[in-house]
């Protein structure tokens, strides 16, 4: 996992509420046995014109002014639905490093943190402000400072966002969480002995 400390980037606006994992990556694309080949499926129900692989010019990902954005701003309740980790893999494969929303579904948030994709939860007002800023100027950039848990808007306003201490530490150091559990092997063995049936 790549370490994440700070990120300054323009943003890709997808102002749709309840973006579910079937929209992020439809099931048809899940017949893979690796983490590759998922980018083509990212938002494929929306980014291509119906029945084609032709770009839908109205969808944010296809708009020239949003190219290069590594932060996606989604509507409320982002990532609802299935447990497929293919959703964060596809988003990261495209180049996103952080997602801003007012709320995230539990499993999606957990999966994202384990891959170094940072879910940033902001209040409704900030959320609205971000969308208007992008509309006014698609080049608008924000800075995400994970160490201090701060999102800095172009006017200098700082908005703090929550993240659990453990996931934060893992992301800043770029280490996966499995290492911690492997270090617990004595405790796990003791539990198994105590609870042997």
């Amino acid at each position: 996992m790549e370490a994440f400390k700070t990120l300054t980037s323009k943003m890709m606006p997808v102002p749709i509420n309840d973006i579910d994992t079937d929209q992020i990556i439809p099931a048809l694309y899940l017949k893979v046995t690796s983490k590759d080949g998922l980018v083509e499926g990212l938002f494929s129900n929306w980014r291509y014109l119906p029945g084609t692989k032709t770009d839908n010019p109205d969808f944010a990902i296809n708009k020239p002014e949003h190219q290069g954005a590594t932060i996606l701003v989604g509507g409320d309740n982002f990532g609802t639905g299935s447990s497929r980790e293919h959703a964060p893999w596809a988003l990261m494969g495209y180049g996103f490093k952080a997602i801003i929303s007012t709320s995230f579904a539990d499993i999606f948030r957990s999966n994202s943190l384990k891959n170094g994709l940072l879910p940033v939860i902001v209040d409704e007002e900030t959320h609205k402000q971000i969308f208007s800023l992008i509309e006014e100027d698609p080049e608008t950039a924000v800075t995400i400072d994970l160490v201090n848990q701060l999102l800095t808007l172009p006017d200098g306003r700082e908005v703090s966002f929550p993240i659990d201490e453990f996931s934060k530490k893992c992301m800043i150091q770029g280490v996966d969480q499995l290492g911690y559990l492997l270090g617990m092997k004595d405790e796990i063995a003791a539990y198994e002995v105590a609870n042997a049936k």
């Binding site: 299935s82 447990s83 497929r84 980790e85 499993i107 957990s110 999966n111 384990k114 891959n115 453990f166 996966d176 969480q177 499995l178 911690y180 559990l181 492997l182 617990m184 092997k185 796990i188 198994e192």
Partner: peptide, 29 residues
């Protein structure tokens, strides 16, 4: 996976990173 809660079990869905954790350690964070 929540289905299995019908039996009075604590059952929930996990991502692939977590599948690997459970495979390797039989535990989850």
């Amino acid at each position: 996976t929540s289905t299995h809660g019908a039996f009075g079990a604590l059952a929930f869905g996990i991502g692939t990173s977590e599948i690997e954790m459970v495979m390797a350690t039989q535990t989850l964070l």
